[in-house]
């Protein structure tokens, strides 16, 4: 059980290649999740009962299913449909990378729906009414008042979700993509040294998650600078930051619960 620095050095390019794939997938999934999540959140919160039910089903299925299963479904399942097989869509679904981003994106977007919905419903009526009373059109009130406040409320939960799904990108190995974990595995298969590649890969993951976390915390400080004063935090207790500030050994928290106890969440 030794760490082989020479091996770590020579395998660095391969691991960095894998890390690049992990980053690429993470960023793409965040983009897909933001777009799909925002759209489906509007569907989920629609006054139309049928639409809202579709939104709820979307969340239940894509949040309840482990992401690896969604990957298999997209990669192995969708090409069986003739609409995919017999049209140019086939070109997209033949790409494991596309399938991975779509599969993880569906899972991630379902969490985004719930985070955004939680944020939107946490926005107090007061500022929204004030904006309406000023004669602003409802669309502007939503975009400029309700949404910015909701984003601030949801930022912490979103951070937790992104950190968790970054770690869940290891599932892309299931559809033959060589990400950081895949690269480490390959080096193990060649050298029969499990420790050096896996520990090096672990260090890279640690840097990625913590870098992302520090980025989120900087964003949080920027967006919430209006609360930086000494005035007590009046936001609802559920969205208050538990321990503000920058500390390297703070652990990312956990995703919200699916299904019913939506009001109960950690921090």
């Amino acid at each position: 059980m030794t760490f082989d620095f020479a091996l770590a050095w020579t395998s660095l390019p391969a691991l960095l290649n894998g890390a690049w794939m992990t980053v690429l997938i993470t960023v793409s999934v965040m983009a897909v999740g933001a777009v799909l999540g925002f759209g489906m959140c509007l569907v989920r919160m629609s006054r139309n009962r049928a639409l809202a039910a579709i939104g709820a089903a979307y969340v239940a299925v894509f949040r309840g299913a482990p992401s690896i299963v969604l990957l298999y479904l997209v990669y192995a399942g969708l090409p069986q449909l003739s609409i995919v097989r017999d049209t140019p869509l086939w070109l997209l679904f033949a790409s494991p990378l596309f399938c991975a981003i779509l599969g993880l994106g569906l899972n991630h977007s379902a969490y985004v729906v719930e985070i955004l919905r939680g944020g939107l419903s946490a926005v107090p009526a007061g500022p929204v009414e004030a904006a309406l009373a000023l004669g602003l059109p409802p669309r502007i009130v939503f975009v400029k008042v309700r949404l910015p406040m909701a984003v601030r409320y949801g930022l912490k939960a979103y951070q937790n979700e992104v950190l968790i799904f970054l770690k869940s990108t290891v599932a892309v190995g299931a559809v033959t993509i060589a990400d950081l974990t895949g690269a480490a595995n390959e080096i193990f298969a060649m050298t029969y040294d499990p420790f050096t590649p896996l520990v090096t890969a672990g260090a890279m993951y640690w840097l990625l998650t913590n870098g992302l976390r520090l980025g989120f915390e900087a964003l949080d400080r920027r967006l919430n600078r209006h609360l930086a004063a000494t005035v007590p935090d009046r936001r609802p207790a559920t969205v208050r930051r538990s321990r503000p500030g920058l500390s390297l050994f703070r652990q990312p928290l956990v995703r919200r619960l699916p299904a019913k106890p939506a009001a109960r969440e950690t921090h």
């Binding site: 007061g126 009414e129 000023l134 004669g135 602003l136 059109p137 406040m149 601030r152």
Partner: peptide, 23 residues
């Protein structure tokens, strides 16, 4: 309003310029 209902994420000036600019 009783509870002021200022827009918390905007400065005092932005609170006042927001509606004239948008509406």
């Amino acid at each position: 309003f009783q509870h002021f209902n200022l827009f918390p994420h905007m400065t005092v000036l932005e609170n006042c310029t927001f509606a004239p600019r948008q509406a």
